[in-house]
């Protein structure tokens, strides 16, 4: 009974969200009839621009470049963030010394970093975007993992020690599972930051990648291309969020569910 109600609710929710998208498309179509395509291209024009991007190979080429940079910068931030959090959690001195610097790094707006990166590295193909991703996502990762380490229930560690569990077993079965949800949350939060940072950096300080082609479309007044890229970016983020991160998060926190 309960299952059929929740299935019914799910179906209603899906119908409603699909209707919402259709309403927006109709509204967009109607509105675009009143404006020049330079101001607001129609959904059809946007779709044609998308088709052209696909056929020319530019869609995949630019996406792969941006994806590679995001992956590189973000992996570096993830490793450095985790390592620093582990180090700080075991050394109060380092924590007191460097914690304020990490907080300040987080406060500085990305636009300052990108201007500085262009001054320092020039319009480099890879270095400027990778630097920005690293500097923007490192504090996010660090803070998440660090708070995860601080929230490990030490009473469980005591219990494990009373029952003579080895150090290795305590690390693998007590610390690690407590930390995993924080790592997934750090990955999830940081990745969305990283993705946006790469495009921003490519827009200002690079000669390839999605950000760069968007800046070109902007310079050439190809508004329908801007719209097409916006749709590509939305789809990519949705695939990451709902195709990878949400199922991963559900998997690592399945023990939290009460049903």
């Amino acid at each position: 009974m309960k299952t059929s109600i929740s299935k019914g609710n799910n179906l209603t929710r899906r119908i409603l969200s699909t209707t919402g998208i259709i309403v927006v498309l109709i509204f967009w179509h109607k509105l675009s009839q009143n404006y020049h395509p330079l101001i607001l291209p129609s959904p059809q024009e946007t779709f044609q621009a998308l088709q052209k991007l696909w056929q020319s190979g530019s869609l995949w080429a630019s996406t792969l470049i941006t994806f590679r940079r995001t992956l590189l910068g973000y992996s570096a931030a993830l490793v450095a963030g985790m390592f620093t959090a582990l180090l700080f959690s075991t050394c109060r001195f380092l924590q007191d010394l460097f914690r304020p610097i990490i907080t300040v790094t987080q406060i500085i707006p990305p636009v300052i970093w990108i201007v500085l990166a262009v001054i320092w590295f020039g319009i480099a193909d890879d270095l400027t975007p990778i630097f920005l991703i690293f500097i923007v996502t490192f504090p996010v990762v660090f803070i998440n993992i660090f708070s995860g380490l601080e929230s490990v229930d030490l009473r469980l560690v005591e219990m494990a020690e009373v029952y003579r569990c080895s150090r290795r077993k305590i690390m693998l079965d007590v610390y690690l599972p407590a930390l995993v949800p924080h790592v997934v949350s750090a990955v999830s939060l940081g990745l969305s930051f990283a993705w946006k940072s790469t495009i921003f950096a490519e827009f200002i300080g690079s000669s390839s990648g999605i950000g760069f082609v968007i800046s070109m479309a902007n310079a050439n007044l190809e508004t329908e291309k801007l719209f097409a890229w916006a749709i590509v970016l939305i789809l990519l983020m949705l695939v990451f969020e709902y195709g990878i991160l949400t199922p991963l998060n559900k998997r690592v926190t399945r023990w939290k569910r009460h049903d």
Binding site: R155, M159, A160, V162, Y163, C165, K169, D173, V174, W255
Partner: peptide, 26 residues
């Protein structure tokens, strides 16, 4: 030595069986 704590100290990410095996395997 075994210890029954005042408040249950169970590993939330392990099943009932997993919690027992966690100490029993030692």
């Amino acid at each position: 030595l075994a210890y029954v704590f005042q408040e249950p100290r169970l590993l939330p990410w392990k099943t009932v069986e997993g919690n027992i095996r966690f100490v029993q395997d030692n």
